[in-house]
């Protein structure tokens, strides 16, 4: 089940084109702190990947490298076959195709829910207002809050805000969605409503990479679970084997800590 990284000489740009995301020998440092160590990862189109690991293990940094919110210093990252480099044009193309949902929602407080959703389609995709509004309403219905369209984010609960954030990402019709601990900042009773939306999305064929500790979610929708510790990918496996038969000591320790309470 474990995907072996290809050997270095075989790596060509065309091979990266078949994957949604390809990371090869990626390293990143914050000053002297080595936060990502030799990351190799291929994500198939339509695959759902769940990344977990103790805090400070570099999992958020890893997915933030995929849309260049963080810069990697060594190695190569291809998204939809396009290499992430200093070329701002490529970065903008990739960001258009990659949506991101944040732990703290990051909705724009001065805009209504509807305006939050239509902003990127109008200004990045140059979509006419009426069309953008129609698409936004469609996705707000999908996340089950069309009636909140004219409210401001500050008037909504955390779970509602996170669902708006998901709808906002979807309005750009991204090919890849990144989730950075989408339920960690929510009250327990609101986690379910957000996970329900994510599970429904997973059934629709979009490529998803989720940093989350929701193990139930990982089991339901994950094609692959990746365990990170100290900036390294320690273990990757399908969810069933990952949870029932972890190979690595650190994985076992981590699972015993999050499952035994």
């Amino acid at each position: 089940m474990t995907q072996k990284p290809e050997s270095a000489n075989e790596k060509t740009k065309s091979a990266a084109g078949n994957y949604a995301v390809t990371m090869r020998d990626v390293h990143k440092w914050y000053g002297k702190f080595h936060v990502l160590k030799n990351i190799n990862l291929n994500v198939e189109v339509g695959e759902k990947i769940v990344i977990c690991g103790p805090s400070g293990s570099g999992k958020s940094t890893l997915i933030r490298c995929i849309n260049r919110l963080e810069e990697h210093q060594q190695g190569e990252i291809f998204v939809e076959g396009i290499e992430l480099s200093h070329d701002i044009k490529n970065i903008e193309i990739i960001r258009r195709e990659v949506g991101m949902v944040f732990q703290h929602f990051n909705l724009f407080p001065h805009l209504t829910v509807l305006e939050n959703c239509t902003l990127a389609p109008i200004w990045v995709r140059k979509m006419p207002l009426a069309e953008a509004n129609a698409i936004a309403m469609e996705y707000l219905e999908r996340v089950k809050i069309p009636e909140q369209a004219d409210k401001y984010p500050g008037q909504l609960s955390g779970g509602q805000q996170q669902r708006v954030a998901i709808a906002r990402s979807l309005c750009m019709k991204p090919r890849i969605l990144l989730f950075d601990e989408p339920t960690s900042a929510l009250d327990p009773e609101m986690i379910k409503e957000v996970l329900d939306v994510m599970i429904q999305l997973a059934s629709e064929g979009i490529t998803m990479i989720c940093v989350t500790h929701e193990m139930g979610f990982a089991r339901t929708v994950g094609d692959r679970v990746i365990f990170m510790d100290n900036g390294e990918i320690i273990e990757e496996n399908n969810p069933d084997d990952f949870f029932l038969n972890p190979q690595h000591e650190r994985t076992k320790l981590f699972l015993s800590q999050i499952l035994n309470h």
């Binding site: 960001r95 990051n106 902003l119 200004w123």
Partner: peptide, 30 residues
């Protein structure tokens, strides 16, 4: 302005000037 606002704008693919004009400055000036 929280860093998350800049990140949300960046992650949508907005240009620097669009992000400033549409998201950051309206809040900062307010």
């Amino acid at each position: 302005i929280p860093k998350g606002q800049f990140e949300a704008a960046d992650s949508m693919g907005l240009h620097y000037w669009s992000a400033m004009r549409l998201i950051v400055l309206p809040q900062a000036i307010k």
